[in-house]
Amino acid sequence: MADDAKPFLQVENLTVRFPVKRGGMFGGKAYLYAVDDISFQLKRGQTLAIVGESGSGKTTAALACARLVPAHSGKVVLDGQDFLAASDVELRKARAKVQFIFQDPYSSLNPRLRAEKIVREPLDSLQTIPAEKRDEVVQKLFKAVGLRPEQMRLFPHQFSGGQRQRIGIARALATQPALIICDEPVSALDVAVQAQILNLLRDLQSDLGLSYLFISHDLGVVQHMCDEVAVMYMGKIVEHASRLDLFNAPQHPYTKALLSAVPSVDKERREAQKRILIPGDPPDPIDPPKGCRFANRCPIAQDICSRSEPALEVKRRGQGESGHRAACHRVDVA
């Protein structure tokens, strides 16, 4: 189909900023650019992972894609339609196509509603299917995520963490979305339960042809789930590549440092891996440095890095269609 070749989600120059108060009586308004001019695409049935440390803007980027925080500028095109410009009626229709799975399965479910009502809620509010069919859909969803029918009548507190995340997934599937944004879907779960949820997400993806925008800080999980990876640092994408390219041939020094910091049970990897230390903390996000934002912690920074900001450009051909891109002056362009 021609439709499949087109990206389902297209994000162009997306910027999200938050006003912050400056001290003093005459302190003017300042802005924190949580997401600063990022662009990416996601095809149907694929998974794009956004990785980065806390404060890198990955969650804000995801929220902005779902219009859960207002974007300052840029475009989010969803299935050919400008999502950010959509009017109320259009928005309601478009919302059915994008759903969200949240990090914390404890706080993201309404404790006063029964599980079946939680899963049914998006159907009721977005009205994608007639009312008499909704019960049947809810039953199917419970089965699809591995919950038993008798559990439909229970309240969230009667479920374990993993089961609650399954309810969250069922709710996200209710409106038959094409894109699910998963914001750290397993980081609040025990390791043994993580595996169950990750396997479920992959099964659902191959059964239903879902696209995932997968936000995580756990590189092991990302490696297992993604087709492509974008690495964020202080609101910018610093590297974007296919899964194998990024993990086997990282280009940006920040990505290298991030990968080298992950402890591993693989003895071979531990011995081959040279730890790249990045000292200190990221600079103040309200007043980011002029040049490369990573320059003050970068082991290979030179004068040019603090003077001008590197663009995200193709450094290697790589496997992905759009090549292996990185934003670094010190990495040669292919």
Binding site: Q194, A195, D266, E268, R269
Partner: peptide, 23 residues
């Protein structure tokens, strides 16, 4: 049950081993 980073990543991704149930 944990997807680990290995020395050389390959195309294949095996299904994660699940420990069914909970403590």
């Amino acid at each position: 049950c944990v997807p680990h980073l290995h020395a050389e990543l390959t195309e294949e991704r095996e299904r994660l081993v699940e420990i069914g149930g909970i403590v």
